[in-house]
């Protein structure tokens, strides 16, 4: 996983609440057995006016000129600003894969759905939760000022506005450490392999039915 330390990036505002993972990456693209290549199909049904097919070259597809990612002023955006409950619905990790592949490294929202929030951290994307009042203010600034950028610093846990004001955000200490260092959390967990094994053995003795190796019992 790529580490995340600091990013100064252009902001794209997606002014909708409850954006679900079906909207972020529609189901037909989930048939891929790879982790990459989902960027061209990010928000596919909003971005294009036809129905996309997996494996199709998207360069000549008819686009919806009003959708924000098609507007010239948001080209190259790396920070997505959105409303509450972003990433609700399906657990598909293809959603953060698509956002990452498109170029987003930070998503700022009033709140996130749990599974999506978790999936972001596994892929080097930083989800930032800010209060509704600050989100409202950011939406107003982004739409008023073309080329609006924010500085996001994970170490300091701050979102720095162009005028130098800093908004603080919370992040779990463990997740922060993993993201700052780009750690592989399987590797981290396997440092506790002896503890896992001991736990498992105790469980096997106490509740052997949980360890059946075939139909009809242990």
């Amino acid at each position: 996983m790529d580490k995340f330390v600091h990013l100064d990036g252009l902001v794209a505002p997606l002014d909708r609440a409850n954006v679900d993972t079906d909207a972020i990456i529609p189901k037909q693209f989930l048939k891929s057995i790879k982790r990459s290549g989902f960027g061209p199909n990010l928000f596919d049904e909003w971005r294009y006016t036809d129905i996309g097919q997996p494996g199709e070259d998207c360069t000549n597809r008819p686009i919806n000129p009003d959708f924000l990612l098609n507007l010239p002023r948001y080209q190259g955006a790396q920070i997505l600003l959105t409303r509450k409950n972003f990433g609700c619905g399906s657990s598909r990790e293809h959603a953060p894969w698509a956002l990452l592949d498109f170029g987003f490294r930070v998503i700022i929202a009033e709140s996130f759905a749990d599974i999506f929030f978790n999936n972001c951290f596994k892929n080097g994307i930083l989800p930032v939760v800010l209060p509704a009042s600050e989100i409202d203010a950011l939406f107003a600034e982004v739409s008023a000022k073309p080329g609006y950028t924010l500085g996001v610093d994970l170490g300091q846990q701050t979102v720095v506005l162009p005028d130098g004001r800093a908004l603080h955000f919370d992040v779990d200490a463990f997740r922060k450490e993993c993201l700052l260092n780009g750690w592989d959390d399987i590797g981290l967990t396997l440092r506790h392999a002896e503890k896992i094994r001991a736990f498992e053995e105790k469980r096997r003795v106490e509740q052997p039915w949980l360890f059946a190796t075939g139909a009809g019992g242990v």
Binding site: R92, E93, N118, N119, F174, D185, L190, A193, I196, E200
Partner: peptide
Amino acid sequence: LGIGTSEVEHVLATQCLLQK
């Protein structure tokens, strides 16, 4: 719990899930 694919790999490899 519903989990993402990275967590599927984590559970396959470690029989554990990181959770708060």
